[in-house]
């Protein structure tokens, strides 16, 4: 995947081939965690595609973010199998536990909550991913336990560093 390929390298390697806008945006997002304004300007400059069109492509696709994400990214699956197994209740529990809405980031910058259309682990429904780890057969209670576990680990880490968690 493009993640081990620095954004600058991609840009530098850009040879004017048509159709490279989306891969360029993907590598910018892999690099920065979101697509910052200066990346848009930069990509527009190099490719000659107007900034407005670049922005149009970014907002068309669900994958692209214009805001930085939290340290831990939660993706709850809302595919059909998860939906009929109660994913709505999981989302309610997460929103309640973290005090954020879907798409939002907690004020301490620890968590961002997204939904995804299908993670393809339908037989483990309902499922969520926290960063790259998949958790299956969840209940509202087990979701809260997982989130509290992460928060506790963060607080311990922060206490050891003698500082509060930084966003």
């Amino acid at each position: 995947m493009a993640s081990d390929e620095p954004f600058g390298y991609r840009l530098w390697r850009y040879d004017g081939a048509p159709g490279e806008l989306i891969p360029l945006l993907q590598s910018a997002q892999d690099h920065f965690g979101y697509i910052p304004r200066r990346a848009i300007q930069h990509i527009a400059g190099v490719t000659g595609i107007p900034e407005s069109s670049v922005y149009g492509v970014i907002t068309f696709y669900n994958q692209f973010r214009l805001q930085p994400m939290g340290k831990h990214v939660i993706r709850t699956c809302v595919g059909t199998a998860c939906h009929v197994s109660g994913s709505r209740m999981l989302i309610d529990a997460i929103q309640d536990e973290l005090g954020i809405e879907v798409g939002g980031t907690t004020r301490d910058g620890l968590f961002t909550l997204f939904t995804v259309a299908c993670l393809g682990c339908c037989s483990l429904a309902p499922v969520m991913m926290v960063n790259n780890e998949t958790h299956g057969r969840l209940t509202p209670a087990s979701v809260r336990r997982i989130l509290r576990g992460i928060r506790r680990a963060e607080e311990r880490g922060a206490a050891e560093r003698g500082a509060r968690p930084t966003p």
Binding site: P18, G19, E20, L21, I22, P23, L25, Q26, V57, F60, Y61, N62, Q63, F64, A117
Partner: peptide
């Protein structure tokens, strides 16, 4: 080519537009 998360891109003419970077 990696998709970028849009269901309609499964429709073949939309898929072509997406490969073309639009």
């Amino acid at each position: 080519k990696q998709g970028a998360g849009a269901f309609v891109c499964g429709e073949e003419t939309a898929l072509f537009a997406s490969i073309e970077g639009e």
